[in-house]
Each structure stands twice: as C-alpha cells, then as structure tokens.
Amino acid sequence: MTMADKITLSPAATASRRRKTTHGLLGTLPAVFFLVVFFVLPLIDNTFNSLETRAEDGGAIDNYMRLFTDSYYLEVILRTLWVSFLSTVLCIVIGYPVAYYMVRHVKGSGALLIFLLVAPLMTSIIMRTYGWQILLARNGPLSDWLMALGLIDRPLGLLRSPVSVYFGLVHILAPYMVISIASVLQTVDRRLEEASLVMGASRFETFRRITLPLSTSGIVTGSIIVFMLCNGSFLTMLLLGNGSVVTLPLLIYQQFVLVNDTGFAAAMGNVLLLLALICLYLQLRIVRGKGAA
C-alpha cells in the first residue's frame, strides 16, 4: 500500500472496506477458475510425473532427493536465484532513471519512446542473440571502440564470459521494468513533489521521501516480472556466455532434449516453481505489510 492510500483512507472508509471483505475477492473468480483448469491440473499431472524415476527400483521421491542431497544441484539452484536477483537489481538501477525521465521530462515524443522500448522485444530471441554475437565479438565494434578510446588494450573476450549473459538478460528484461515503473510513476501527484520543493526540501530529499515511496508499487511489479521471467528462461543462458552460466531451466531443457528423463525435469520444475512462489509471496507480504503498518 502506498502513502496516497493512507491519506485517503478515513476511518469511515476503512469500515466500509471491512464490510466488503467477504465478497472482496469475487472478481478474482474467473481468473482463479481459469488457472485451476489450465495451470493447476496440468501441474498435478506433472507432479505425478516427477515421482517416476528412471531406475526400475527407484523410490517415489528419488528425483527430489537427488536434487537436495547433491551439492552440484544445490549450487545450481542458488545460482539460478542469484542470476535472477542480480538481473532484477540491474534492471531497477538502469530502468528507474529511464522511467523517471520518460514520465517527467518527455513532452511530445512519449509514444515514440515506448515504441523504441518495446521494439527489441518484438524480434526473435535468435536474432537478438545474433546481434549480440556480432557486437560483442573479439574483433567486434564494442572491443574496437573501447580500444580506440584507450579504455582497454586487448580485445575483450566478452562472449566467453558471464557478462554477455547479463547483457542479453538486461536487454530483454529492462523494458518490462521501465514500463512497470513508468505506468505507476505517472499516477504520482506532482503537487506533492512541488509542495516538498516549495517547503525547502532538496531535490534528492524530495525524491527519496516523496517520489520513490510513491512509485514503490511500480518497482515491485517490475521486479516480480523481471525476477520470474529470468528465473524461468534458458535461451539466453544457452546462446550467450559460452555455457558459463548454468541455471535450473537450462538443466530442465537438457533433460528434455538430451536425456529424455521427464521425471527429473518435472521435479526440477516443481522445485523452481516452489522457490519462485516463496520469493513472490514474501515480496508481496513485505510490501503490503509496510503499506498497512
């Protein structure tokens, strides 16, 4: 919840909200029903699948035991969460200023900037990766320019390092962050910022105390989307970074395409889903808790 809400919530209004608690979630029924039929049921099927092991004498939870008792898989699970976390932070740091600029300083060309923002997402991942391969190559333009500027003295081996994976991830995920933040930032009443400035607060102080808190829900939305998308993706890890970033979805892909052990793939998928849901729930709780306090 945000400050704007707190301000408008008179005791009477709160009381009227309370009365509505019982049917407050009625509107979610169609969506909940849809997901029960087309997400939960297939998932249950998938869970049964995860209990089947390749070995004839395998126990029902062997696939899960394999994941949780082997330090290699634990490492991969942690790395998966870490890559998603780091990408999310990078996207916030890079995306917030862009969203802020678009909402506060762009006058006539707003739609154009949105086009530019989403255009990269409308080409296929295969071609985007191809673009990066050209740009980041040892003798590619980036290395050349950096050498010409005297910033480096040897061509960079970016394509072989995890750096290129983050280039690829931030490239496709940052637009989601920017749009999420911008769509919320535009609802922030500028008079609050102006009042703060008039009353003598510095611009940094105004940003920290007014703008940032009021746009939190945009950052949260963007973070959820970026974190989850990153958590489930494997194509960027597959095609960039020379195989240096191995995450759970990539292992799932291997089980399908190379090993055909769908039971183990299903088990990894369930673990990934569970971890992501825990992160998501905690995030929502923290945000709500803060607002309601």
Binding site: Y130, Q133, A137, R138, G140, L238, L239, N242, G243
Partner: peptide
C-alpha cells in the same frame, strides 16, 4: 575453445574471428 550451442553460431564465430 569456444562452444557453439546453436548450429549457426559456429559460422558466426569463424567469421567474426572468435
């Protein structure tokens, strides 16, 4: 060594000097 994880990456790698 550089790995290719897609058939066409090979050609890009040879052409770009990677």
């Amino acid at each position: 060594v550089i790995f290719f994880n897609d058939m066409n990456q090979y050609l890009t790698q040879l052409q770009s000097g990677e």
